[in-house]
């Protein structure tokens, strides 16, 4: 049984978040270990496992990105956990400049802070655009079930992951004491 089936859903990329949450609460009421606290050990254990399964499935499906990655994996795509080391060609120049600024700040050059803030803003913007594009592709796939679109989504996800890592790196440098954003 895959995560979608667990929620009684078809394998789709666009999901109604409120509906998913409601179903998650319903199923939790049925299988949460709290409901079996005074039952025999076997029943308690099963509740624990069922509940873990449910929680893992909800966590995966709730977030559109992890949901898409999961569906790609289920459809046999290698989503490559490699951190997207290859710089997407259209970002080459930008990333080069960014690295310079990062080095500068690490070396104590506070003037690099401005360009980094700027880069961060630009990358976040890019991520927003990517998310819009993903939303569109999600709908296209749900309507057609076309594997070629999944291939396209895979590419976009890689680019997104790359940008997310960049943003994280920049944020880490800008606020050295804070924990990095996800």
């Amino acid at each position: 049984m895959d995560h979608f089936q667990l929620f009684g859903l078809k394998r789709r990329l666009s999901l109604d978040a409120a509906g998913l949450q409601e179903r998650f609460y319903e199923l939790s009421r049925e299988c949460h270990p709290d409901r079996y606290a005074r039952r025999p050990a076997g029943e308690r254990q099963k509740a624990e496992q069922a509940s873990a399964l449910l929680n893992d499935a909800y966590r995966t499906l709730r977030d559109p990105i992890s949901r898409a990655e999961y569906l790609l994996k289920q459809e046999g795509f290698d989503i490559g956990e490699q951190r997207g080391k290859d710089v997407p060609p259209e970002l080459l120049e930008e990333v080069f400049e960014l690295n310079m600024a990062l080095e500068g700040l690490r070396g104590g050059d506070e003037d690099a802070r401005g360009p980094l803030e700027e880069a961060r803003r630009r990358f976040l913007e890019m991520r927003c655009e990517i998310d819009t594009e993903l939303g569109r592709l999600f709908q296209q796939y749900d309507a057609s079930g076309d594997a070629a679109i999944l291939q396209q989504i895979r590419g976009v996800l890689n680019r997104r992951r790359y940008i997310r890592n960049l943003v994280q790196e920049v944020e880490k440098e800008l606020a050295p004491s804070g924990q990095p954003a996800r």
Binding site: P33, Q49, S51, A52, L53, N55, D56
Partner: peptide, 8 residues
């Protein structure tokens, strides 16, 4: 911040 029980 994963809901528990959680597994991997």
């Amino acid at each position: 911040n994963s809901t528990i029980p959680a597994s991997a």
